[in-house]
Amino acid sequence: MQWGSVSEFFAMGGYGLYVWVSFGVTALCMFGEVLAVWRRHAAAVAESRDVS
């Protein structure tokens, strides 16, 4: 473990902005995609009930 404190961890040796934007956007994209597919599936199930 190379981090002395929590703030040191978030600072990432001065590269905090770049590191956290990278990981943050990746997490947003992946969670966003899961949510979008989830909602699309719910909509598709609801519509298939209407037709048949």
Partner: peptide, 18 residues
């Protein structure tokens, strides 16, 4: 996981016709 979930949506959308 996510492509299998999406292919299920695609199947439902495309096979919907009665």
């Amino acid at each position: 996981a996510v492509t299998l979930a999406r292919v299920r949506c695609v199947i439902l959308d495309r096979e919907r016709q009665p």
